[in-house]
């Protein structure tokens, strides 16, 4: 069987299976209404109304402590909002548990690279594939039943340039490769939408270019919402940018609009330096 790109395989899947591929790009896939998180008096996220268009690469930027990661934790349900509503793909997910949100196709990554360090690279990806396969409570079966997933895992790894490292424990990978592995693991779930928390943090330029290209190719068939500090990455990659500051939305629009906004300049550089 000729090796095919995982991305194409996923598209076929989407068209025949779950049906989300048929939906119109451009409509809203994720929406928050008055999203607020109050940590015992400290309001980390205040009345955020966010709309992410289907198929977009949407960035969330802002100075340190602006509430970006809290926002991500709320969207992926790792935190429960104090107030407000989250609607994903037409469904209210405000009351769901994090694992349920992930199963609906809204999958997050983490700021610090989230791999399973003492599993091999292949096993990392297989864990994600295994969840979709089902039967993960089968404690009486040998894990050889999982070998059917290896081929698919190999394709996913090849797409992020990790094919040669399949049997290396993830802990031994350099940082940039770990992030690539994390992305491969996330894609293995074939999610509708990815929440990437600073996917390029701590990476060298070469890695940044590779991961940027990867994210771009991913977004052809799905939506990406990412937190990113590197503004040149954001400028090149993202269709739409939301700027958060002190838990509130300061500005929204494409890179040009946002970067020209005086309030954004002030938030980034401080008063008097604008």
């Amino acid at each position: 069987m000729p090796r095919r790109s995982a991305l194409y395989a996923l598209t076929d899947n989407a068209d025949n299976g779950s049906g989300w591929g048929k939906r119109v790009p451009g409509d809203t896939v994720l929406e928050t209404e008055d999203l607020t998180k109050d940590f015992a008096g400290f309001v980390a996220v205040r009345a955020v109304n966010l709309r992410v268009a289907r198929g977009a690469i949407h960035a969330m930027i802002g100075p340190n402590g602006a509430g970006k990661t809290t926002c991500f934790n709320l969207l992926s349900k790792f935190l429960s909002p104090t107030r407000g509503r989250i609607v994903f793909d037409g469904r209210d997910i405000t009351a769901l548990r994090p694992a349920e949100v992930a199963r609906l196709g809204l999958v997050r990554s983490f700021q610090i690279s989230a791999v399973f360090p003492h599993l091999t690279v292949l096993e990392n990806v297989r864990i994600a594939l295994q969840r979709r396969r089902g039967g993960s409570f089968d404690f009486w079966r040998g894990k050889s039943v999982l070998r059917t997933l290896d081929e698919r895992a190999g394709v996913l790894l090849a797409d992020v340039g990790l094919a040669a490292y399949a049997h290396v424990p993830a802990v031994q990978l350099p940082y940039g490769r770990k992030r690539a592995l994390e992305i491969a693991t996330t894609i293995a779930l074939d999610p509708q939408m990815l929440l990437l928390d600073e996917p390029m943090s701590g990476m060298g330029r070469e890695d940044i270019e590779r991961i940027s290209a990867l994210i771009k190719s991913l977004a052809v068939h799905r939506t990406v919402l990412m937190v990113e500090h590197n503004l040149s990455v954001v400028a090149n990659l993202c269709d739409r940018i939301t700027v958060l500051s002190r838990g509130e939305v300061l500005a929204e629009g494409d890179y040009r609009t946002v970067s020209a906004d005086p309030a954004v300049r002030e938030a980034y550089l401080g008063t008097g330096h604008a």
Binding site: F78, F116, R131, F137, K143
Partner: peptide, 22 residues
């Protein structure tokens, strides 16, 4: 077993296992 693989994933990084839908 497949179950054991998930257990090891939980041991290694529970938030990540949750974010994968477990």
């Amino acid at each position: 077993s497949p179950f054991g693989e998930v257990l090891k994933a939980i041991r290694e990084n529970e938030p990540r296992a949750i974010s994968l839908g477990y």
